[in-house]
Amino acid sequence: MKYEIWDDHTHLVEKLGATPEEQIGKILKFADRVGISRLVLFMGTFEGTYNLSPEQLRRANDLILRAIKPYPDRVFGYVYLNPKHTQASLDEMNRCIRDGPMVGVKLLVAEYCNKPTLDPIIQRAAELKAPVLQHTWIKITGNLPDESTPMQLAELAARHPQAALICAHSGGDWEMGLRAIRPHPNVYADLCGGDPTSGYTEMAVREIGAERCLYGSDIGARSFSSQLSKVLGADIPESAKRLILGENLKRLLKPILETKGVKL
């Protein structure tokens, strides 16, 4: 295998089975077909809302805990939080990361990410050596209420230079999003979630450097294949492809994975 591929952004896929165990088992078979060795998994369920209650968050995270349990060295979980419930989120971080097997934080569309309510969560994540993956999008059709943009993530990054932040989807409109996160070396560009538009990865490497780019698939919404093509099809050096496909995420997660005893 020429590349070691780590996928920084996956979800359970309901059509594959009734239980998280069944779904992840089948997901891994598809991952094998395209050479993906390790996956980051999060957000077990939406429950029809972006503003999950503490109880709903626990249910969503429990699904991920069940899915990752059989594969401690291959599938890594991020804890799904809602900054509108700051204390409950901190408690959930303790349950799932400090005292559990999870290794990062996922934030979706519950609160604009430049709000001060995020600060305790980001500080705690940095203490735990856990990266924070924040959904971002810039839609000309209009963002959802409380849906963050890369520009808002840049504000958060400036307040927390010690935290590792991942700009999910690079803002969708990557030509805008990559510019917004460019000045902040603690922000990584997650390349997944949008169309496999030619030029995306080339611009990311040119503007923020290959060391700050992460391959992800966003399966559940997308495919391994379309998103892999963004790296494999890009006109960038082989060394950059290796970084984006696996080495960067491995480097990012290594400190916390080592505390969990994960074999690398």
């Binding site: 395209v34 391994f224 294949s225 379309s226 093509s229 963004k230 890009a234």
Partner: peptide
Amino acid sequence: YFESAALKLQE
């Protein structure tokens, strides 16, 4: 990227 369609056949 052409590879997107090609990889779909592999996936």
